[in-house]
Amino acid sequence: MEHIITVTDLRKSFKRLHVLKGVSFSIPKGSIFALLGSNGAGKTTAVRILSTLSEPDGGMASVCGFDTVRETERVRECISLTGQYAAVDEGLTGRENLRLIGRLRRLPDAGQRADELLAAFRLEDAANRRASFYSGGMRRRLDIAMSLMGRPRVIFLDEPTTGLDPESRLEVWKTVKALADSGTTILLTTQYLEEAEQLADRIAILHDGKIIAEGTLDELKKLFPPAEKVYIEKQPTLEDIFLAIIGKKESA
């Protein structure tokens, strides 16, 4: 299997706080890989190193076959980062934001590509409105669309649905699945178990700076004793109710 991301014994400390204590994993091309962990587990630190924003103290990481420290430019050409906070320019319209990225990435077809993405992310109606007027979900969608402008081979999504309402979350999930279908490799971090379960081909659990379990969902399930059958009345969750009432529940 061809791996597009390989991380070996990654270490990183901030002053005396050891955030990553020897993290290793590799991600097959075209898959969705979820780094699951609670706040402070080191997920963002790992993503920052992989996206060349930060250098590790020890170990190494390679993305698209390039070392993230020695070949930062080559890595940057093949990745896109969607960080924890929506990285859009609020003073620009949706279309302008996309074109800005297109021009910085020197796309010959920046305008056309922007229109494609606006359509794909259902932002056409809002295309000429400033991003400061967007809802949280729209902003996130624009954010992800901006990451796709340059047709990156690898995309990092750092907690893509934190702070989103359930509807927007479903939208983002759909987008992520569609992306992986088109062959893009996705590394996403999340603190929501459900999100990892829904999206990821492989899941790594990062806890206290170390990967404590890694595998497909089925492999992880095997680590636990076989399920016991218990009959309980399935109450709809508040989320089910909410989504049913507003009539937009996706038949996933």
Partner: peptide
């Protein structure tokens, strides 16, 4: 102080 700085810094510019 916003995410956009990280986006620019992770781009080949």
């Amino acid at each position: 102080n916003k995410g956009i700085a990280d986006r620019f810094r992770s781009m080949p510019i």
